[in-house]
Simulated scan of single mutants.
Amino acid sequence: MRHAEEVTFGGSALDRAGEVRSNPDVIKFMLRAGDTKAVIFWRGKPLISPQRPASLVRLSLDHPVLADAEADPILLGREDGAAVFAFDLSKWAPDGLDEEGMGSFLDPSEQRHPALSEEMVFAELRRVMTWLTPRDAELAATGKAIIGWHDIHGYCAKCGAPTIVTQAGWQRSCPTCRASHFPRTDPVVIMLITHGNSVLMGRSPGWPQGMYSLLAGFVEPGETLEAAVRREVFEEAGVRVGAVNYLASQPWPFPASLMFGCQGEATSTDISIDPVEIEDAQWVTREEMMEVFAGNHVSILPARKGAIAHFLLENWLADTLE
C-alpha cells in the first residue's frame, strides 16, 4: 500500500536496542547514564504535555516523581543514542479520582501528579494518539502495551509460580520451572470489504450513537489472514468474500493487538448479522462516505482518527490503496 507506514503508531523507525536487552551490564550503564530518559505511565496512560503540538514527556532518571514508580523499568529503545525507559506509576493514588469517568468509552479525564509541573498530565492514549508525533506515538504504544502485559503475567502459565522480569522488561522468567514468557501480541484482521462502489460498515453494541467502523476479528490458531477475513465477515455479516489483499498494519495497544488491514472483494451483498458480534451492518457508497468524512451524514459518524479503519477508508476515498 502506497502509504502503509503512515498509520498511527507506525513508521517512526525507533531503535529498539534489542541486542542489549540480555546484557545486564549495559542495562545498568544505561540506567546510570546522564542522557537516559524516562517516559512514565499511570494505569496505561502516558504522561504528555497536551498543549498543541502535544508531546510525550521525557524526564531525567533523577526526577523525584520516579520515587513512586514500580520496580523494573522497561527499555523501550534509543533516541539519538540515548536510552529511553518506561516507568509505571500505577501505585500512585490521585486525590478525587473519578473511577466512573475512567471507565467510559473514551476516557476524558486527566491526572496530575504533585511532583510534576501543572502542564504535564496523564491522558488516555486512545484520546490523544493523533496529537503526538510518530516517534512519541510509537514510544507511548510500546510502553503501554508491555506494561499492560506485565500487569497480568506475574505468575508462570506452566507451573503457577511467581515470575521475575528479565531481558530489560521484555521477558518474564520462572525460577521454579525455568519457563520463559514473552509479551504477547494478538493478531486481528480489520477488513475494507468492497462491492462495486460501496464498502461494508458495522457497529458493535455499546458504541456511541452513530459510530460505525470496518468489521474486524481475531485470527484463530492455524488460520491465514485471508481465511480469517473471509470467516469473520461471514460470521458477523453473512457476506461472502473472494479475493483478499493485505494493505497495512497497526500496533493497537488496547490492550495488545496488531491490526492487519486487508481489502476483500465481496461476492455477495445480502447482510445477515450475528447480533452477538455486531449490532448493525450496512453498505455505504463512496459518495455517502465522503459525506461521512465531511461530517454531514445524517446517521453515521466518521471513523475515529488515528485508528486504522479511518486510515483505510481515507485511502479508499483518495484511491491510494495500491
Rank of each mutant, 00 (worst) to 15 (best):
L116K: 00
A67N: 11
H63G: 06
D62S: 12
S60C: 09
V20G: 06
H195K: 09
W316Y: 11
T285G: 12
G196E: 08
I190K: 01
S180E: 13
A82R: 13
S117K: 13
H310D: 14
P208T: 07
P175L: 01
V284L: 13
Y212E: 10
G264E: 07
S12G: 02
G10N: 12
F29M: 06
I152Q: 12
A256Q: 10
I273R: 07
G44I: 08
P253M: 03
R2D: 12
E119Y: 02
T176H: 14
M290T: 12
A17E: 04
D62Q: 13
A266H: 06
L258I: 13
N197V: 03
F182R: 09
I193Y: 00
V188L: 05
I308K: 02
G77P: 03
K158H: 06
D274Y: 04
R126G: 05
R135N: 07
T8P: 00
S12N: 13
E226C: 00
A227K: 11
R286C: 01
G169Y: 03
T185K: 10
M201Q: 10
E226W: 04
A307I: 00
R203L: 07
A318I: 00
G11D: 09
A17P: 06
E138T: 15
P302Q: 01
L317Q: 03
W207P: 01
S117D: 14
E314Q: 15
R203C: 14
M30T: 00
P183C: 08
I273A: 02
D62L: 09
L139I: 03
P251Q: 12
A115L: 15
T8L: 07
A93P: 04
D98G: 07
N296F: 06
R52I: 04
A266Y: 04
F293N: 08
S249H: 12
S198M: 11
L61H: 10
G196M: 07
S117H: 11
I273V: 15
R58V: 02
D68K: 05
E124W: 14
D136Y: 00
G34S: 13
Q250M: 09
G295N: 06
Q263T: 05
D136A: 10
E124I: 03
W207F: 14
R32H: 12
M259P: 00
D68I: 00
R127C: 09
S12V: 00
D136G: 07
P253N: 08
T269S: 11
